[in-house]
């Protein structure tokens, strides 16, 4: 099987609090995988585990077929955190240039890629503006650009479209689909239901437990409802019920 992320029996505890409880999942190469859940469900912790920032308390995670042992493996991943992790004093271009240089892209390649991603998130005209003058949506877009600048094979996006207007959100999703067709694996967390529908497969997360995982259509079909919202209410209403996966 061609899986990009493989989690087995993953448990994450902070002190006595269990944030992720026995999660098994496998994400295929080239799919858009959504993590849906209310805030506090453990979505961010789960993606940090996937990004190799966190080490699970229990269980195993393999990325692209291998456990994360060397930093070099992280070259293939891109991560967009929930907070806009940007240097406020620096311009958009300088931020991207810094992150690109960490991935040791050549100067020429860096310039080309930065231009491309700025174009993609529609920030080309603001490239020389310091980030502190940016609006919330602009910062979000720049964060996305920073996650994509080194052409990773897998990108992890934590709530990528918060604060972004519908038009731009659509164009970001178009970009994500384009990336998918290039074979890039995309992992997205969201609590927006209509965004969840755009994913190839979805995992529903609640209180650190994975309560369902399937394609959006199958999820709806299984519980015989018409919207993702209803699916979520169905599973969320009764947490004792663990579906077969």
């Amino acid at each position: 099987m061609n899986s990009m992320v493989e989690m087995k029996g993953v448990v994450q505890r902070y002190g006595k609090v269990t944030v992720i409880d026995q999660v098994d999942l496998s994400i295929q190469k080239g799919e858009i995988f959504g993590l849906l859940g209310p805030s506090g469900a453990g979505k961010t912790t789960l993606v940090k585990l996937m990004a190799g920032i966190l080490q699970p308390t229990e269980g195993t995670i393999s990325l692209d077929g291998a456990a994360l042992r060397h930093l070099a493996q992280m070259k293939n991943f891109g991560f967009m955190a929930q907070s806009d992790a940007l240097y406020q004093e620096l311009t958009a271009w300088e931020n991207l240039d810094f992150f690109a240089s960490i991935y040791s892209l050549s100067r020429k390649k860096r310039r080309k890629r930065i231009r491309e991603v700025l174009e993609m998130v529609n920030l080309s005209s603001s490239k020389d503006q310091p980030v502190q003058t940016f609006s919330g949506g602009m910062k979000r877009r720049l964060s996305l650009a920073a996650a994509l600048v080194h052409e990773p094979e897998m990108i992890i996006l934590d709530e990528p479209t918060v604060g972004i207007d519908p038009v731009l959100r659509q164009s970001i999703w178009n970009e994500l689909n384009d990336l998918k067709h290039k074979g890039v694996t995309i992992i997205v967390t969201t609590h927006v239901m209509d965004e969840a529908e755009k994913c190839d497969r979805l995992a529903l997360l609640r209180k650190g437990k994975m309560i369902a995982m399937d394609t959006p259509e199958m999820l709806k079909e299984k519980v015989n409802v018409s919207s993702m919202e209803d699916v979520f209410l169905h599973y969320g209403g009764d947490t004792k019920w663990i579906p077969s996966m």
Binding site: K48, A51, G52, I53, L71, A72, Q73, M74, K75, F77, F79, A81, Q82, S83, D84, A85, L86, Y87, Q88, F99, I102, Y103, A146
Partner: peptide, 14 residues
Amino acid sequence: TQGTLERLLATPIK
């Protein structure tokens, strides 16, 4: 606090 450390640690930087 601004999250760039975490962001940096998601890259191959030592």
